[in-house]
Every structure is written in C-alpha cells, then in structure tokens.
Design a protein around this nucleic acid. Structure first.
Length: 307
DNA sequence: CCTGGTCAAGTCTCG
DNA sequence: CGAGACTTGACCAGG
C-alpha cells in the first residue's frame, strides 16, 4: 500500500498545474508554463519521496490546452529530456502515478464532437505518462459519463468508445464509480463487458451505494485488475461535516480512517486521499497506518512525515 | 499593487 | 428555462 494526495502541494510555493487564459495562448506562454510546471512537479516529487508519500496524481493542467485545437506546439519534443528525467525519478523512487481528466471528458456522450474531444484529451494524458516512460500501472481514471435519459444505450456507447481507443490510452484507462449516475455495480458490469479495470471510490460508494461491504467491494474490484495494471488504485475521502453531500472534508478524521484500514485488511491497493488539506492529511494517514504491514515506506521516514 | 470577476469544455438537478 | 454544482485555484483586467 502506497499513500498519496492529488495534484497540489500546499507546503511548496509552486503548482505543477498553473495555466493561463485561452486568449493569451502563445508558444512562448505555453512553454513557460510547462517549464515551470515540470520544475514544480520535480520539487513535489522530492518532497513526497522524502516523506514517504509514494502515490501522486499529476494535474491535467501540466500542459495547458494540450488537447485544444489552438495548441500546435510540440511540447512532447521540446521537453522530452525533462519528462524522461522526472519519469526516471518516479520509477527509481518506486512511486505510483495516476491522472484524472476532468468532467468534460465523456467517452459516452451522444454528441460525436464531444466524444472526439474526449479522445483527444485522453490521448494527451497518455502522452504525458508515455513521455515519462512509465509502465502500464500508471493509470488514467475517468467516470463512466452521463446517462442521457437512456442508461443501457449510454453504457453501450461507453463500450464502443473504449474499444475504439488507441492502445496507449486503453492500457492505462480505468473507470471509477461516481456519486450521482453510475454506482460500483455498474462499473463492475462494464468491466465484465469490456475488460476495463475498476477504481473503487469509498465516499462515492457511500453516497450512491452498491450495497457491498468494504471487503466485498475490494474483492470484486481487485479482480478487475490484471498483473500489468499494478496494484488496484482506490480513492478515499470523507464527507465534509455540514457541507453538500459529496463535498470533501477539509481535514482527515483519523478514527474513521483507522476503521477503514481495519475493514480493508487482507487487501492491498494504493490509496489516494482526496482531502482538501492535501499533504497534511497524507501525513496523518501515514501515521495512522504506520504499523500496517501493507504500507510501503522507508521506516526511517515515518518520524519526519508526522512533523 | 490589490481585488474580485472570471475562466475551454458537459451534464444533471433544482427552483 | 436559466442558474448552479461539480472542484478550485489563480489568472489577469481594471481600479
């Protein structure tokens, strides 16, 4: 088990996903942003490796507007050496990496143009992970998409879209149960029909319940991951008290987290903590898990991680 | 400088 | 039928 947090580090004075307005797009502007984002990503990786956070989600804004028609810049080529160096550091450090395109990426939209733009966006995400020369355990996670008034047709369109994806995308794509439209059962059904691995999101499953216990959900999702996919990925969050249903908590509450660690014994996975305070909760989670036999971390780092 | 309105994109729900 | 949520920060225009 590795533990991590998504995209942003609040302790460092930089972000690895800084962007700009579309109307100020230029080659110079793009290259300046990518250079700054890659430098910050390196700083975050150093920070994470020093503290034992071995799972990280890279911001989709690493290369702003990469899949937009306005972007004719060959960033892949220009920053090739930087991507390779960062990827090497990730591999040497034993880090697990994922990306999560946002809600505009919809493989199952009835609108062909939206599907086409979504495929372009997925191609971009795969290009980033490929440029880092990461193995097929570096994943791209998306939700199944919209319902459009016809669940069965929407699911069929997802399968069609999935099967039409390029190999570089398909080897990395996984689907996540969401909290509004498609619960874990439907994600598992999709796996049975097209083979896409299923990423289990604990909070979403509480809001839109599959009815499975934690261990039953883990048993079923684990079976959707092949050896080449690596350890199953999981999203863990907690409901913000007094917030909208599904709103992520500001800080990790240790008691429910410890209960989750107990409930999930016997299963191994890499765990993404979607908590607003980011690395602070990741540190607390490491502390909660410090006696857990599943945890992959250099033990001498545990002390630092809790300071 | 500082502030706050606004930002590529889609879909669903609610008033 | 239009606005807001999703999730969220930070860009950047204008004072």
């Amino acid at each position: 088990m590795r533990i991590g947090y998504p995209c942003l580090n609040r302790s460092l004075p930089c972000t690895a996903g800084s962007t700009f307005r579309l109307k100020s797009f230029s080659r110079e502007r793009l290259e300046a942003s990518v250079a700054a984002n890659l430098a910050c990503l390196e700083a975050i990786l150093d920070y994470n490796l020093a503290r034992g956070f071995l799972y990280f989600r890279i911001s989709s804004d690493l290369v702003p507007f990469a899949s937009h028609p306005v972007c004719d810049v060959d960033w892949h080529q220009t920053f090739n050496a930087d991507f390779r160096a960062i990827g090497r550091r990730m591999r040497v450090g034993g880090m697990r990496i994922a990306m999560h395109p946002d809600q505009f990426t919809l493989l199952n939209s009835p609108t062909p143009d939206i599907r086409k733009r979504s495929v372009a966006e997925l191609d971009y995400h795969a290009q980033v992970l490929d440029a880092m020369e990461l193995a097929s355990d570096a994943k791209i996670q998306i939700h199944i998409g919209g319902v459009y008034g016809q669940r069965s047709e929407a699911l069929a369109r997802f399968i069609e879209g999935y099967q039409g994806l390029s190999e570089p995308v398909r080897r990395r794509l996984v689907i996540e149960n969401d909290d509004r439209q498609y619960c874990l059962r439907e994600a598992l059904d999709l796996h049975a029909r097209c083979g896409v691995p299923v990423l289990f999101d604990v909070l979403h499953d509480q809001i839109l319940p599959s009815g499975f216990s934690i261990s039953e959900a883990l048993r079923r999702t684990e079976a959707t991951w092949a050896r080449k996919d690596g350890l199953p990925l999981m999203d863990y969050s907690q409901q913000r008290t007094g917030g909208r249903v599904g709103a992520h908590a500001e800080h990790l509450r240790p008691a429910p987290f410890r209960r989750f660690l107990d409930d999930s014994q016997g299963f191994d996975f890499d765990l993404m903590l979607e908590i607003k305070d980011k690395e602070r909760s990741a540190a607390l989670a490491l502390k909660c898990a410090h006696n857990d036999p599943r945890l992959i971390v250099k033990r001498h780092l545990l002390h630092d991680a809790t300071q």
